[in-house]
Nucleic acid binder design. Structure first.
Lengths: 104, 104
DNA sequence: CTTTTATGCAACTACGCTGTTGCATAAATT
DNA sequence: AATTTATGCAACAGCGTAGTTGCATAAAAG
């Protein structure tokens, strides 16, 4: 149902996580420490946010030596964006038709 | 910053609220009681969700007699969808350029 | 080999969110 | 006028989330 669907928007619905997503989109894959810079929170807090993003598939991680590289999964973000766009368009037509029906 | 931005996705990030948005999009404006049908929760719980949706501008309400009619604000939903779409496209180009740069 | 760096895991606190019940109000209905 | 219907408001419980600190580990650097 809408449960899984909602999870992605919930993941995006936190300022810290949205900022992380933006950073990954603007500058490409990076480590946890790079991501946490300027966020005003500890590394552990940031890690938790990254786990949330990973659980919904928005971010993937690769271990490289002692580092963990986090990467934005654009396909997933794109799918989430497209779903909203499609619904918005679809409902626009539907509600428009409903409106003209009620008026006419 | 991303705080206000995140609020909209957080509002969408709950199964009950997302279902309400879908219902409003599919069937047009309706009362709280119509909206709560089949959601498996009390009217009061549903009202709280509707307040959340209203606070971020996704839903507006009109009092008609003893009823309150809730309506989906498509412009706001559309804006939220467009923002995600735009970012997804923008980052796709950016990360693609970064990738070919690193490879080449 | 010692030290620094990057990270994970666990326990704990604080707070907010979701949902409930109970009561009050005000508009339709009969 | 009495009843039903649609709603709001407030207090409360439960639970999850966001954040912290502290300790452990393992790779890189010196």
């Amino acid at each position: 149902m809408s449960a899984q669907r909602a999870d992605i928007y919930q993941a995006l619905g936190d300022p810290a996580r949205l900022t992380m997503v933006e950073r990954l989109g603007e500058h490409g894959p990076m480590t946890t420490l790079k991501l946490v810079e300027g966020l005003g929170m500890t590394r552990q807090a940031a890690t938790k946010h990254l786990v949330v993003l990973e659980n919904v598939g928005l971010v993937s991680s690769t271990v490289r030596g002692r580092e963990v590289i986090r990467e934005l999964r654009l396909e997933v973000l794109d799918e989430a964006a497209a779903w909203l766009s499609d619904r918005a368009k679809q409902w626009d037509r539907k509600l428009d038709a409903l409106k003209t029906f009620l008026e006419g």
